[in-house]
Write a protein that binds this DNA or RNA. Sequence first.
DNA 1: ACAAAAGTGTTCCCCCTACACCCATGC
DNA 2: GCATGGGTGTAGGGGGAACACTTTTGT
Lengths: 259, 259
Amino acid sequence: MNMQEQEDWDSIVLKGHEYYLPHLSVDCVVLGFHHNQLKVLLLKPKQKKNWALPGGFVKKDETLEDAAYRTLLERTGLSDTYLQQFHIFSNPNRTKHYRNDEEFESIGIKMPEENWLRKRFLTVGFYALVEFSKVVPMPNVLSDQCEWWDIDGIGELILDHNEILETAQKSIRLQLKYKPIGFNLLPTKFTLSELQKLYETLLGKKLDRGNFNRKMLSYGFLIQLEEKKSGVRHRAPYLYSFDIEQYNLALNEGLNGGI
Amino acid sequence: MNMQEQEDWDSIVLKGHEYYLPHLSVDCVVLGFHHNQLKVLLLKPKQKKNWALPGGFVKKDETLEDAAYRTLLERTGLSDTYLQQFHIFSNPNRTKHYRNDEEFESIGIKMPEENWLRKRFLTVGFYALVEFSKVVPMPNVLSDQCEWWDIDGIGELILDHNEILETAQKSIRLQLKYKPIGFNLLPTKFTLSELQKLYETLLGKKLDRGNFNRKMLSYGFLIQLEEKKSGVRHRAPYLYSFDIEQYNLALNEGLNGGI
DNA sequence: ACAAAAGTGTTCCCCCTACACCCATGC
DNA sequence: GCATGGGTGTAGGGGGAACACTTTTGT
């Protein structure tokens, strides 16, 4: 740990209560899509055995959304991402015993008995859907690694982060039914079968190709471009891009009905 | 204001920070259904011009859900209600200037400059669907009235409570599409057309009687009883009750499809 | 008898489902 | 040619939308 990091750590521990709200944090479930796999961005906190969702504290004069955006920008380099709060987790014991003396002594900090970080924390869960290739994962001062993980290959995370992740996935599947948010996970140009793979991954089930294509095109917010790169050993599929104006129009009309 | 109330108020103002979490509250959108009208429970805070959603603070060792249940129990006398968090409102200025000296002087309290109630507050919105007739609206120490209002006849509420109410309605409409939560608003015995009126009110549009009946019955969680009271001057409609076991079964199977 | 609303039936049609069939491309 | 996946066609069925007809009750 270099001088700067030590200072940052000291600052958060000893002075954080001056500029952050107490008892409150945000955690972000950052999802990407790569090689037909759903990925989630995780941090490896120093001195902890398990990995963690990227998160942060809330400044005294910012909204939760701003705090989440800030966290996301710092971890991924991305602004303008699709970000959505989905639940607040408030189990009184969720952070009990998480901050312990050994952890801090090992990095040269004597944490006061009454430090703000030892208190109970509630956390607001956000999910972010980002374009995998644009992300440059960056660890923060409290962690030594920041990496994409296959969402199915994740072991035990710190605290209740497994629960937060699962809740996020449920919310996303629900949203997907009436709002095609999946586009945020794809590059600007994509094929229909890439889109289909994404939907299949998010929903956890196979879909019919023909029906899927027709349905997506019927929404009217996909723009067909020219042919795909010759790198595939079968018929070249069309590339599509996403027409955000038509998309917003379609959203207001409502994509699904039902009582 | 009697002695007890004065004490309670004093206690909240001067000692609240000892047993409540700072900066955080819950607000409940309590909905009922009566005379084919959707009703919402509102409080009239003393010394304020506008009405308010019932709300409360969060004890240092309870979950947000517990805090909301507690609020609900105190205001309505109901436990076992359908309660759902739907959003957390975090505008840094949402409570600015809400607590002012005049307010407190008028009830005989000199509020310290640095009192916890003057700080920024975030609030977690919950909605509750309750059986109108079972509710006994009860004001709290901070308010002099607690009443049902027609949801369409509400003027300006305090703070951002109009926004909270609107957000709640959107969430409920969305939920209703894939989860028939409306039953929580009806008495144990009800007719199909009462149910239909409720749906029409919640969704804000007319529905076809025949199609509605068939759809609801097709779910399989309605139990047909015997005839209705003779108090109607037309054919007596069947009464139905709600089979919670079949309901849970149906929910797991999924009521709606879509990609 | 009449009004009003409940219960039930019927038709049309859209859209989802499922397959099937041909097309383009790299090896 | 052949394997592979892309694009498109189509027959069938389920169910929603709209409407009609009959039934029951109180006045």
